[in-house]
């Protein structure tokens, strides 16, 4: 609660740009997720293969992840772009990105030579291609930051959450809520 009120105070004094930054973070993160999911969804066998290339998960789990990940990326990406259930979607997207960071870092540490399979493919490098672990890690770390921002300052401008009245309670509501508690 203490951290909440701290964030709350901070957001009061924050420049008007904050909601727009959230919108930008949502669009970047959501856009990347939709593209990544779209490029994988037509070839489930390859998607499974790309997960197996990390040699991290047991075969059955890797298969389930290979089938489920592309559609999960598309759905979470769409929610972020629309600004629907923003905080929840951003948290899920952030956890996904963290999982990718762990996977890539572990592949690098174990000396595997794979492609991250982030945007389709089966995880094997093309002939003469070198692994691009550092670039992939930096990109995903940047996306983790986008997710953290959107989760911290939801829902931003142009969000369905606001349109549908799903936003976290604003100043009045907070005051009302505290009054209500006193009354009870």
């Amino acid at each position: 609660m203490a951290s909440d009120s701290h964030a709350f105070r901070w957001s009061l004094s924050a420049p008007v740009a904050v909601p727009w930054v959230t919108t930008l973070a949502r669009l970047v993160l959501g856009g990347v997720l939709i593209v990544a999911g779209w490029l994988k969804i037509g070839t489930p066998a390859l998607s499974v293969q790309a997960v197996k290339a990390y040699e991290l998960l047991p075969d059955g789990v890797a298969t389930a992840v290979g089938y489920g990940l592309p559609i999960l990326e598309i759905v979470v990406g769409a929610l972020l772009v629309l600004g629907l259930l923003t905080r929840f979607s951003a948290v899920v997207a952030g956890l996904l990105m963290l999982a990718f960071v762990v996977g890539i870092a572990s592949a690098w540490a174990r000396g595997l030579r794979i492609d991250c399979g982030c945007f389709g493919g089966d995880g094997t490098l093309a002939a003469g291609q070198e692994p691009a672990y550092l670039a992939e890690l930096l990109r995903d770390a940047g996306l983790v930051l986008c997710a953290a921002w959107a989760a911290w300052f939801p829902p931003g401008r142009l969000a369905l959450d606001s349109l549908l009245g799903l936003t976290p309670p604003d100043d009045d509501d907070l005051l009302d809520d505290s009054q209500e508690k006193e009354n009870e």
Binding site: I41, P44, G66, Y67, G68, P70, I71, L72, I74, V75
Partner: peptide, 11 residues
Amino acid sequence: AAVGFGSWYAA
């Protein structure tokens, strides 16, 4: 439901 159906369809 969309994620569930999509996963099932992929499989």
